[in-house]
Amino acid sequence: MKKTILASALGLAALGAHAQSSVTLYGIVDAGIGYQSSSTSLGSNAGGRSVVKMAQGIWAGSRFGFKGSEDLGGGTRAIFQLEEGYNSATGAESTSGLMFNRAAFVGLANQQYGSLTMGRQYAPYYTLLAPYSPTTWLTGAYGAHPGDLDSMDTIYRINNSILYTSPNFAGFTFSGMYALGGVAGSTGAGQSWSVAANYIHGPIGLAVGFERLNNATSGGGAWGANSTANSNGEPGVSGITNGFQTAQAQQRFAVTGGYTFNSQWDISASYSNVQYVAGAGSKFFSTQIWNTGGIVLHYKPLTALDLAAGYSYTRATSANGITSAASYQQFTVSQYYSLSKRTGLYLVEAYQRAGGQTLGTNGAGNIINATADIGDGQNSAPSSSRSQVAGAVGIVHRF
């Protein structure tokens, strides 16, 4: 159970006589054993070997955090959240040098007018699409679309962001975000923005979202430190996007939706269009586009057991000298058994097959065979071949 602690007990502030204030400590610990075939370092196309290793954060990223609110009267609350991701196998920060890498924001919320927050946050593109994304039942590590190309998992948290989210209007919610790059003399450099909306009514749900992430480095190249989507490097580098990491901007449009048949069966589907925009400083010369479609079927035969299976297909455009465009087919299945409301055991298995060609690390002129990169759990060590098999068994506990 989450532990609610009076803010005064933490020494954060004295409570006013008229206001109620609270702080909640919460977290997740996730650890297990994982298998990955044909592993190699990112950017290498040499032969690799399979590996069995400690796996962590597979079902849910290990984290701890604080969130709280203060009643300001008139239905308005001050709110904040600080959340740190960590490696449960080593205790290290999940992102080096970022203490609260998952969230760090403060703002105001009102049931009638919505919420306005500022800090490091998820984009609306992620939060409003999430209910029907493939990661809900397949995990991000093995079920996110190849390399988490379309950012339907949790790779992107946006620095310097201002975020507004509306209240729920008869099932309809919308949200918008703008993040300031802070580059002197160039307002647009490094900025990010996102808009999204979803509608949930009974068994049916639908969401649509867009995001644009600009490189703070003029004309593209290595992502500058003032890029609001920058967390120690270019966002979202994987075996899928490795040759295009010097983009001037990244742009995503996606639609997700789902239908619940009954208490045992539900289905969700998603489509995304991802563009890596070339600039004068990029190592590729024309915008690269990927289109992805996916479907997930979830079955709950017992109160304590959840089973799911999913398939996705990604196709790149023929650009930058490539005549045989890259494609990726991914199959993922998962099994989750609840020991209690807070603790569960899981198994996740996945297979991906790549085809066609893409660009290597050196960009244009370095055309290589596309290689597999399942979900986003293998981004630092994609396959050395067109095929990849991965799986994990583990335990997750929430507090």
Rank of each mutant, 00 (worst) to 15 (best):
G182N: 07
V208M: 10
Y132T: 00
Q191C: 06
T173H: 04
L163Q: 13
Y142Q: 06
S238N: 03
P131M: 08
T127K: 03
W137N: 13
T154Q: 04
E211R: 08
T173D: 08
T217L: 13
T127S: 15
N168C: 01
L163G: 06
M177W: 03
M152V: 10
T217G: 04
R212K: 14
D148Y: 10
N214A: 11
L128W: 09
E211W: 07
V183L: 03
P203L: 11
Y142H: 13
L128R: 07
Y156H: 06
W137C: 04
T173P: 02
N198Y: 05
L163Y: 09
N242E: 10
N214P: 10
Q112K: 14
G239T: 09
G219K: 09
V183E: 10
G209F: 03
G143A: 04
W137H: 15
Y178E: 01
F244T: 11
P131Y: 13
G171I: 11
A189S: 14
V183R: 08
T246E: 09
F174E: 00
H201Q: 13
T187D: 15
A196C: 09
V183H: 04
G171R: 09
G221N: 08
Y156A: 12
Y164K: 02
S194C: 03
A197R: 07
T135S: 12
Q251A: 08
Y126K: 12
L129A: 04
L149Q: 11
F253S: 11
W193F: 15
Y178K: 00
Q251L: 10
L116F: 15
G188H: 10
V237I: 13
Y125V: 00
P167K: 10
A184Q: 14
G221Q: 12
A207V: 04
P134G: 03
W137S: 14
L128F: 10
A141T: 15
A207L: 07
L163W: 06
A196D: 02
G190I: 04
T165S: 15
Y199N: 08
L149C: 05
P124E: 07
G176D: 01
A229R: 00
V183D: 09
